[in-house]
């Protein structure tokens, strides 16, 4: 099966670089799957789960936001922060969600509030997904 180059970088370091089969990216306007020979695209990311399939291995990572760029060389993701799903600390995550809720309540304008509400919704969706994921694993 054809493979393509995938790089995941965060500001602090290069997290992953290698050949993969398939990557499911949580794009700002919906999830999309990148396969070899994908059309060039630049997209922003929403908080969500990034699924990487290489060989028979499936890795799931939580990303907080960032950018994805697909070109003829492969896929590059600039993530603000990426953690393997197993390593996400649910208590901390819940704390960050409630902190965000508090921030939303203090939003200065309607426009900002709308944007923040959207992000909060996405965060909650991830929380549910993560919660489900850990539950199924046990």
């Amino acid at each position: 099966m054809a493979m393509f180059k995938f790089e995941l970088v965060s500001p602090a370091k290069l997290l992953f670089s290698g050949e993969v089969d398939e990557v499911i990216v949580p794009g700002a306007e919906g999830e999309f799957t990148v396969l070899p020979m994908h059309t060039p695209v630049v997209s922003t990311l929403r908080p969500g789960i990034l699924t990487v399939k290489a060989g028979g291995n499936v890795t799931r990572l939580y990303v907080r936001g960032g950018f994805a760029e697909v070109n003829e060389k492969g896929l590059t993701i600039l993530a603000e922060d990426a953690t393997a799903v197993e390593d996400v600390n649910m208590t901390e995550f819940a704390a960050s969600v409630s902190a965000y809720e508090a921030k939303l309540a203090a939003a200065p304008s309607d426009e900002a509030r709308f944007k923040m509400a959207e992000t909060l919704f996405q965060l909650k969706a991830v929380q549910a997904q993560l919660g489900g994921g850990t539950h199924a694993a046990h």
Partner: peptide, 14 residues
């Protein structure tokens, strides 16, 4: 030499 990108969402938003 780079191909034309598709943008998601629009360029200015990105």
């Amino acid at each position: 030499n780079t191909p034309v990108y598709e943008y998601e969402p629009e360029e200015d938003e990105i």
